[in-house]
């Protein structure tokens, strides 16, 4: 990771930590904040990609995919922003889905790291805890108040892991 990536990860981790604590304290009132932040992040990605396309990627081989990706991200961001009126329970299901997805990604990356004798224990632990959180959420799906609390604990955990990973020293492998 470069220094900018570290700072980026650290910032995302801190925002997620704050959101998790807010979610635990104020339950459902935090949903609009989460949706607005998510939509803003997607829109910024979209604008950045479009800017990149029109200033540089236009001249690259295969650069046109940047334009399509930018348009889709922007649309997804604006569309997410328009979903403020949806039943809040769906938002929770959606967020749980993203947590499950990131758990699976973590587990797969840990498996890959194990294959090349890199450090894999922390990643496996992270993925397993996230998956466990999702499972407990699914078990208690009938009571919304409980699910929000369990989910916020999982959210805070994943924020903490992100901060830990950003601060961890990584070995740099140079290929000569």
């Amino acid at each position: 990771m470069t220094i900018w990536q570290r700072i980026n990860q650290l910032a995302i981790g801190i925002v997620m930590l704050l959101l998790g604590v807010l979610l635990f304290l104020y339950d459902a009132d935090t949903y609009p904040v989460i949706i607005v932040l998510y939509s803003l992040a997607l829109q910024l990605t979209g604008y950045r990609l479009l800017w990149y396309y029109f200033t540089m990627a236009r001249h690259m081989v295969g650069g046109r995919s940047i334009l399509f990706r930018g348009a889709l991200f922007l649309d997804f961001g604006l569309f997410t922003g328009s979903l403020l009126t949806v039943p809040q329970f769906y938002v929770l299901i959606y967020l749980t889905g993203t947590l499950a997805f990131s758990a699976i990604v973590d587990l797969l990356r840990a498996r890959e790291a194990r294959g090349i004798q890199a450090s894999w224990k922390l990643k496996t632990f992270q993925g397993a805890v996230k998956l466990l959180t999702v499972l407990i959420c699914l078990i208690y799906l009938h009571s919304e108040a409980l699910v929000v609390d369990i989910f916020s604990v999982g959210f805070v955990f994943s924020a903490l892991m992100r901060i830990v990973n950003a601060c961890r020293r990584t070995r740099v492998i140079t290929i000569s």
Binding site: R64, L67, F68, A71, L72, L74, D75, G77, L78, F79, G81, S82
Partner: peptide, 20 residues
């Protein structure tokens, strides 16, 4: 509104895509 803008953007991009 912004949704209209986004929809318009995607429409224009897909038309441009067919032309490309």
């Amino acid at each position: 509104d912004q949704i209209g803008l986004a929809t318009l953007l995607v429409e224009l991009t897909s038309i441009a895509n067919y032309l490309f």
